[in-house]
Structure formats: C-alpha cells, structure tokens
Design a binder for these strands. Structure first.
Length: 432
RNA sequence: CUGACUGUAGCUCAGUUGGUUAGAGCGCCUGACUGUGGCUCAGGAGGUCGCCGGUUCAAAUCCGGUCAGUCAGCCCA
C-alpha cells in the first residue's frame, strides 16, 4: 500500500455505492439544512477552521476531554512574530461567539439566530460513528433567554431529521442549573459520592473535585448503588432556573415534542447552563448520540464578550447519514442524482470541431452536456452515454455536418430523428 | 492507550491436509457492424496474496514480529 488517508479522515466520493459517504448525499444534506434553518429565520455564519488555542481552552472548558486530550494543535513557525498556538476547531460554538464579539453583532437587531456547518477536528480513538474529522450542522441563538427559544432550537433539530423520514429517536432533556444553584448541587454530589470513592473508578476519583456532575455519566460505575440514589439536579435548581425549566417543558409540550426527562445527562462541555439535551438513535452502536446541545448563558462572557445568553446544538452529519442508512432511508431521503441532458457523439475529423462548438453552445444554453475525449468508436460513445444516463445522444458525422443537422437519439424511447442544428437547443429543452 | 476480530484485483470475496503459470462475480477497456447504448457472447488490462523475518525441497496457506483496518472500552456529534 502506498500513502493512505490519516486515521479518522474519510473520503467522500460521488456514487450511490458509497452509501452515507456519497458526496452527492452530503451536498443534499447541507442544502436541506440550509433550507430548514432558513425557514426558521436563521442566517449562515462561517467561522474559520483554525482559531487561537486560547479561545477553545476558555470556550470549551479546561476540564473537558476535548481540550485536555483531543485537540489538533498547530504550532506556529519559528519565525512567526506571533508565538500563540492555534488549533483546528473541535466544535463550532466557540468560534461563533468570537465572531459575534469581534464583529459587534450585538449592535444588530437581537436575537442573533445563526446556522453553520462544516468539518471539526478531534484527535480521538476512531470507532464506528466517531472520526477525527467530523462534520456538524450547527445552530445557535445569541441574546435571548426565553425558554421558548430553547424549545425552538430543539424543534428545529428534530424538524431537520424528521423531514428526512428519520423516526424512533429518543429526545432526552435535563437542566443543570446555573452558577447560582450548581455549587449546592456539586456539593451534594460530592458529599454523596465521597464515602464510596474507594469503590469507584480512577476517573470518578478525579472528577469528584474537578467536575462532580460527570460522576453521573460514568459508564464503568453506572451500576454502583451510589449511582442509583444519587441526588437529582432538578431538586437543587434556584427559582430562576426552576422557572426556566418549567417554561421549557411547557413550550415543548405546546409544540408536541416527544421528550424524556433524563436527570443523568450533564454533557461533556463545561459551558452549559440550564437546558441540556441529547438525541440518540438505537441503530448506531456505541456512538448513539446523533446530536446534542443546550443553553450556555455564561459562555460569551468567558470568551471576552458582554454577558449574552445563548442556546444551540451540534448535529453529527456522519451519524445522521449513518442512521438514515441503517433505517434504509438513504434513497428515500435524497432524490436521485440529476441526469445529464445530452451527450455528443462525433465521427471523423470533420464532425469533431463541429461537435466541440456545439458542446459549448448547449452548455451556454443551460443544457448539461458532455462529449468523448478518448477517441472512441461510435459504439463505445453510445455505450458511455448510456452509462452516464444521458437523456439524449446527439450524433454528428460528415453527412450531418454537411447538411447542418444532427441525428438526435432519445435514449429512453430509443427513437431517433434528424434535427437542424439551429433547432437543437429548443428541441432538447422542449422534450427534456 | 487496552482488548477482540480482519488484511488475496478498483469493489465484494473464494482459495482443499503447505505443491507447479493465484481464481470468480461485479466494474473497466476492446471486439462480434468500416455509423448507434441497455441484453448476450468472445477477448483484454489489472495482484510483489499488507510488510519483514523464520520453518520447509516447496508458504497466500504454518510460526514470530510489524504495520494497517474494523469493532469495543473511555468520551462524545
């Protein structure tokens, strides 16, 4: 084997045989997302793929796995006067906050409703549904704390996949409070788990001081009795968070969103406050989360902006496409590749230049057209046109050129007629 | 990083208890008509059997190592 793609980096090629890696399906998923987000009033932001490392450290959180062990770092050249490290973005939210601050978007009409999508990079152990270059569809709302916005964002995310036919998903929601109430809950968790530390795993022993909420989503110790009767975060919410939580549920009910309250989801990113949610599919194996998100009212301040509430989600494009494939919905979700309108088959040295001239005339008229570049026989050109699924084959030989006509074969009907060159565009547009 | 499984043609895979020029299907190219696709038929191109070493008269096959891939732990999208 010669050189291969790096581990966790996928190739996307055109062709249905590539399944969820079919580049045409990716193109359609992106267009679909643009359309749905547009209908909800969201506008596209395009953050760079690289930011200063500092932004992600502050934005994503110093205790997160993403920052502590999964960052693709970029070390500046030795002769670069700016010595700051940069990093490939591991997620989109931090960069979007930076854009919002740096461009003074807060001075535009609020709230700011953003969609974005593209590749993110995490130095992970590769597995089914988990890659080092992963793609996300992302939505953020800055500048509104109304729980109706949390509900809108959740509804939007479900709408995106719902319109593609994906069903049987579980929507888990929870509230993890705010800087006012979370310390009390953290303390309650620490007091609850501390007596059992000797029986818990190494990670849990570290987490109890750094991030006790994540004791709850430890898989190793999930069956430990201390997990079963652990304090529930919802019981510790302050008045403001409690009101927000109840408002969220009321709004979700009003929108007929089918959700489950799961008090164990806490999310792996530090910036969340109040609402957190996760949507999982039963069809994906170990990496079952299709998307997740929540509210992060403190994030904008953390990365250097004025206090601004925010809520959003990141949806895994690979996982959505894989779930569609597992459900047999890939063909149904995305229409078939558009056909070519015409293929020009020429014979001989006289017809060739005439064919090339015609090729560009048809293209200029908006007719998708191709021609043979391998000097093949007429038979082989016909065969090739058939494989390309062209609607028409325009045949040019010496006789046709001499008479200013072309033999036009309708490949579906198998019929052929003689058409004046001056009438070709209209002929194809009429029938096609 | 740990564990399990897997590496043979572009793709999906056969390959017997080690034995001569390593096979099939699909795909690709050419021909069966000196100007007509899909079907059929004939032919062709394409492989240092992941790599290195060992055992043997002989290794795709057995052994060791190594690299790569897949899935799982962990974590998340």
């Amino acid at each position: 084997m010669s050189i291969q793609a790096p581990k966790g980096f996928n190739d996307f090629l055109p062709g249905e045989q590539y399944g969820w890696k079919d580049s045409y399906r990716w193109q359609q998923l992106e267009e679909h997302f643009r359309k749905v987000a547009g209908q909800y009033g969201y506008q596209e932001f395009r953050p760079p793929l690289v930011e200063f490392l500092e932004l992600f450290v502050h934005g994503v959180g110093t205790t997160t796995d993403i920052v502590t062990k999964e960052m693709f770092n970029i070390v500046p050249r030795g002769d670069d006067p700016d010595p700051r490290r940069m990093a490939m973005r591991p997620e989109l939210t931090a960069g979007l906050c930076r854009m919002y601050i740096e461009n003074g978007i807060a001075n535009q009409p609020q709230p700011t409703k953003i969609f974005a999508f593209g590749p993110n990079f995490r130095y992970e152990n590769v597995q089914k549904g988990r890659f080092r270059q992963l793609h996300q569809l992302d939505v953020e709302v800055f500048g509104a704390q109304d729980p109706a916005v949390d509900a809108e964002v959740i509804h939007l995310s479900l709408d995106v996949v719902g319109r593609l036919g994906l069903k049987g998903l579980t929507v888990n929601v929870n509230s993890i409070g705010c800087p006012v109430c979370r310390p009390k809950y953290r303390e309650a968790l620490q007091n609850h788990f501390r007596p059992h530390l000797a029986e818990l795993c190494e990670d849990c022993n570290t987490r109890i001081d750094k991030n006790p909420l994540r004791l709850l989503d430890c898989k190793k110790d999930s069956r430990h009795p201390a997990q079963q009767n652990a304090p529930v975060g919802l019981d510790y919410l302050c008045d403001e968070c409690k009101t927000h939580w109840e408002g969220l549920l009321a709004n979700l009910n009003a929108l007929s969103v089918n959700y489950q309250v799961d008090t164990r989801i806490v999310r792996g990113l530090d910036y969340y406050t109040k609402t957190v949610f996760e949507v999982v599919s039963p069809k994906l194996g170990a990496q079952s989360a299709l998307w997740g998100g929540g509210r992060y009212d403190g994030l904008m301040e953390t990365v250097g902006g004025k206090p601004t509430p925010g809520v959003g989600f990141g949806m895994g494009m690979e996982r959505v496409l894989m779930a569609l494939e597992a459900e047999g919905l890939l063909e149904g979700a995305f229409p078939a590749r558009p056909r070519m309108d015409a293929f020009i088959a020429t014979m001989g040295d006289v017809a060739r230049p005439a064919g090339l001239k015609l090729l560009y005339e048809l293209r200029a008229a908006g007719i998708s057209t191709d021609i043979d570049y391998l000097g093949r026989s007429l038979k082989a050109q016909m065969k090739y046109a058939g494989k390309q699924n062209s609607r028409f084959v325009i045949i040019l030989g010496e006789d046709e050129v001499k008479n200013g006509v072309a033999a036009v074969k309708n490949m579906d009907a198998g019929e052929q007629q003689t058409v004046p060159l001056t009438d070709l565009v209209r002929h194809i547009q009429t029938i096609g």
